[in-house]
């Protein structure tokens, strides 16, 4: 157990000294995860809204497929995206492999189903009387949609936070598509895996502490928003 305690002490010292390597890794992680969460939200929220709001043939099977995609392993996505962006793939000439963009593409594929299904669940839970009330008061279809969106905002915010949590903690996609290049594509999780392989636990523990702190801060922010806006 001594090594864990020693690593913990070294990790605290690293954090305190704002180690340059540590800061770069954290910044890369935040940049990549925020980008993929933003893109996935821009796709997933309107998609979830449209699926929940409208009746169309194949709606149930669409939801079933989305639910199935929640269990998609990160390595499977890594492999799938690799096939498209490797030198022999159709997007090979774009030189995306082992770049931050490649990680973002993979992570977007990973979390679009999460954002979409959570949004569907949040919208579906909204009492139909909200829709009828807005409509009978003269709202257009878009204004009615805004009312429903507003009522479902906490569920949708939870979808975004859960998705961010998923991508910032994933390792398969970042490793396979990013390549763990120091200063460029090394994220917190790939760095932790590398440090573990090397038997250097200080940086790994420091990164683990930062990961947990980010997750804690996000949840604090979510709770604050809930408390502030629930009139």
């Amino acid at each position: 157990m001594d090594f864990l305690f020693d690593s913990f002490v070294s990790a605290i010292l690293l954090l305190k000294s704002l180690d340059a390597e540590l800061c770069t890794i954290v910044l890369v992680s935040l940049k990549v995860s925020s980008s993929s969460t933003l893109i996935a939200s821009l796709i997933g929220i309107p998609a979830g809204f449209a699926i929940a709001f409208r009746e169309f043939p194949g709606k149930r099977i669409t939801i079933t497929i989305l639910n199935t995609l929640l269990a998609l392993p990160t390595v499977a996505i890594g492999l799938f995206v690799y096939a498209f962006i490797s030198r022999r793939g159709i997007f090979g000439p774009l030189d995306l492999l082992y770049t931050q963009k490649a990680i973002v593409i993979g992570q977007v594929i990973l979390i679009v189903p999460i954002v979409t299904t959570f949004t569907i669940a949040a919208i579906s839970r909204i009492d139909d009387r909200y829709r009828k009330s807005a409509m009978t008061l003269g709202a257009t279809t878009l204004q009615t949609a805004v009312v429903i969106f507003r009522e479902a905002r906490f569920g949708i915010l939870a979808a975004i936070i859960a998705s961010f949590g998923r991508v910032i903690a994933e390792v398969g996609i970042s490793m396979m598509l990013g390549g763990n290049a120091k200063g460029f594509t090394r994220t917190m999780t790939t760095a932790m895996a590398l440090e573990y392989d090397k038997g250097e636990f200080a940086l790994a523990v420091a990164l683990g502490l930062i990961l947990l702190s980010i997750s804690f801060a996000l949840n604090l922010f979510f709770n604050y928003l809930q408390g502030r806006t629930r009139v």
Partner: peptide, 27 residues
């Protein structure tokens, strides 16, 4: 949509939007 602006329905068990009473009336 045009006709709905002339006929308003108040339900037996109405639901109010998650905001203040004032903003509900303002909608």
């Amino acid at each position: 949509q045009e006709l709905r602006r002339e006929v308003v329905m108040v339900e037996q068990q109405p639901i109010l939007f998650t905001t203040s009473a004032y903003k509900n009336v303002e909608f």
